[in-house]
Computed example of a mutant assay.
Amino acid sequence: MSGAIRLAVIGLGKIARDQHLPAIASSDAFELVATVSRDGARSDGIPHFEEVGDLAESNIGVDAVSVCTPPQVRRAVAQAALARGWHVLLEKPPAATLGEAEALRDLACARETTLFASWHSRHAAGVAPARAWLADREIRSVRIAWREDVRVWHPGQAWIWQPGGFGVFDPGINALSIITHILPRPLFVTAADLEVPENCAAPIAGTVSMCDSAGVNVAMELDFLQQGPQSWDIAIETDAGTLRLAKGGAEVSFPDGRQPPAENDGEYPALYAHYAELIRAGESDVDLAPLRIVADAFLKGRHRQVAAFIE
Rank of each mutant, 00 (worst) to 15 (best):
197 P>W: 12
274 H>F: 03
212 D>A: 02
283 E>S: 07
303 H>F: 01
195 E>M: 13
237 E>A: 07
215 G>Y: 06
212 D>C: 03
203 P>I: 12
204 I>M: 13
287 D>P: 03
265 D>R: 15
213 S>T: 15
253 S>D: 01
246 A>T: 03
230 Q>A: 12
180 T>V: 10
268 Y>P: 01
230 Q>E: 11
282 G>K: 07
234 I>K: 02
278 L>S: 06
229 P>D: 13
243 L>E: 08
263 E>H: 13
209 S>M: 12
187 L>S: 10
187 L>F: 05
215 G>Q: 08
238 T>P: 04
172 G>Q: 10
189 V>F: 09
199 N>E: 04
229 P>T: 06
186 P>M: 11
261 P>V: 12
303 H>L: 15
296 D>N: 14
282 G>L: 07
204 I>L: 14
287 D>R: 02
299 L>E: 11
195 E>C: 09
203 P>E: 15
226 Q>W: 05
195 E>H: 11
165 G>H: 08
175 A>V: 09
165 G>F: 06
205 A>Q: 11
189 V>S: 08
200 C>H: 14
267 E>Q: 15
181 H>Q: 14
219 A>R: 12
222 L>W: 05
208 V>Y: 07
238 T>V: 06
281 A>K: 04
192 A>E: 06
291 L>H: 06
197 P>C: 12
281 A>P: 05
212 D>T: 04
178 I>D: 03
238 T>G: 04
241 G>V: 01
269 P>R: 15
228 G>K: 13
238 T>R: 02
191 A>G: 13
169 F>K: 09
223 D>N: 14
274 H>G: 02
228 G>Y: 09
276 A>C: 08
264 N>R: 09
196 V>C: 08
259 Q>D: 03
298 F>Q: 06
255 P>S: 00
285 D>L: 02
223 D>A: 08
202 A>Q: 15
283 E>I: 00
256 D>P: 03
196 V>W: 05
226 Q>M: 08
278 L>R: 10
212 D>F: 01
178 I>R: 02
245 L>A: 03
166 F>D: 09
193 D>M: 10
261 P>S: 15
243 L>Y: 05
202 A>M: 15
279 I>G: 01
298 F>D: 04
186 P>C: 10
277 E>G: 07
269 P>C: 13
177 S>D: 08
292 R>E: 13
209 S>Y: 09
237 E>D: 13
245 L>I: 04
202 A>R: 13
199 N>R: 10
292 R>L: 11
302 R>C: 09
189 V>C: 10
282 G>T: 05
242 T>L: 02
239 D>H: 04
184 P>R: 11
253 S>Q: 07
217 N>Q: 14
224 F>R: 07
275 Y>C: 01
216 V>T: 12
268 Y>G: 04
273 A>M: 01
256 D>S: 02
298 F>M: 12
177 S>C: 09
164 G>A: 10
217 N>A: 13
236 I>K: 01
290 P>R: 15
176 L>A: 10
285 D>I: 01
229 P>H: 08
239 D>V: 03
197 P>L: 11
266 G>K: 11
